[in-house]
Amino acid sequence: MKPIYSRRAVLTSMGLAAFTGPALWLPRRSQSADSYLNPMQKSRVVIARAENILQPDNTLDAERAGKLLDEAMRALGGLGEKKEAVDVWRSLFSPADRVAIKINSLAGRMLSPHPELAYAIAERLIEIGIPADRIVIWDRSERELEKAGYDPREAKGKALLAATDSQGVGYEPQPEISGSIGSCFSRIVSKGCTALINLGVLKDHDLSGVSAAMKNLFGVIHNPNRYHFDVHKDPYLPDLCLHPYIKNKIRLTICDGFRGQYDGGPAYSPKGIWNYGGLIASTDQTAVDSVAESILSRKRRENNLPSFREQDREPLYIQLAEEKKVGRADPSRIDAVEATI
């Protein structure tokens, strides 16, 4: 298979070529990313929805998607109308960052984060001074990226496309322990970035119940199959999120819900698909999962489907994530706000 992006570009621009030792710099931590650590503060989650963005061919109206993203970020920053979305991006990222946007491309073109949304995110990062060649949109394999509709020609000038299986990238050579997890991490997340954006998709998952935010991060380790069974109730996902590569680097979580799947996941299953028409954004990925659970559960009830609990796959990992201080799961501690254009 042809390489999605040249090895040289990925290795050089993302700093992987130079890495032989530990990370060279500490990531900048945003205040909002830490907000859940303050027991008095709620985690803000923005549910941004608008009509006529999703096209019949499952592409997005890129301009309107970008506008909705801007509104989501303005609402996330809670800055009022005097501030622009770009200020929120500036509060989360610095021009010195190398940003890795982790997508979930398992389900292919029909149920992966839309490229138009990923590119819109990249364009906003460029707007605050991060060069395109310091932004990488990535997942486990080049094949999955390609099948999900990511094309290097379209990405050009916006971001690099790369995968852990791209030549010269790979996994860390030794497993690292984080609670119940012991895994080799993708070098993109260990050494290739200073900041991480989790760009998942709103969907049902056969084993974890919900796949929206945390579940996407199984794609950063080499052995997710070791942790799939009982993943809905075991601490694997929270423990993964507590690893410093994740905990110290994640700045923003966006769940693509323009099209969602409330049943039959994680693969694309037409019978469980619906057009939710929006995205969910937060600096707290646990809160995104919590909101996603309530959206998917409601949709399942509307369609007379058994609950996650009745199917023995209630996503208890979300609650566990709160207990382990990954983020907020309790809806009463989540400030869910809506945005639209």
């Binding site: 056969d206 084993l207 199959n225 070791r226 693969a267 299953s269």
Partner: peptide, 25 residues
């Protein structure tokens, strides 16, 4: 049902949804 399978090779008996892999990887 629903394109799922259950492996009967080893005692783990992984129940695997479409596009997913068993424990063995």
């Amino acid at each position: 049902d629903d394109l799922k399978i259950q492996c009967k090779l080893c005692p783990k008996e992984c129940r695997v949804a479409d596009k997913e892999r068993g424990y063995c990887g």
